[in-house]
């Protein structure tokens, strides 16, 4: 994947079509259980962590 040497994109750059609302993400995550939504909320929290690559998958370029 090509990556341009520009400042890191803040997570808010994508317009969220579904708003999390005024409950903090960490609180939502804590109450979310262990389903799919909980997993994705966890990945949103992790996106802000340093060292985490934001790569798309190269696997899917193949069959």
């Amino acid at each position: 994947m090509a990556d341009h040497d520009q400042p890191p994109i803040p997570r808010t750059v994508g317009t969220a079509l579904v708003q999390l609302g005024d409950v903090p993400l960490a609180d939502l995550l804590a109450g979310a259980g262990d389903g799919v939504l909980a997993h994705v909320l966890g990945s949103l929290v992790a996106e802000g962590e340093p060292g985490r690559p934001g790569d798309v998958s190269a696997f899917e370029s193949s069959f």
Binding site: R11, T12, T15, V18, L20, V36, D55, V56, S57
Partner: peptide, 14 residues
């Protein structure tokens, strides 16, 4: 799709 709906990133080129 879910992550992008919530303002996050895509993990797929699609």
């Amino acid at each position: 799709v879910i992550a992008l709906l919530l303002g996050g990133r895509s993990g797929t080129q699609a």
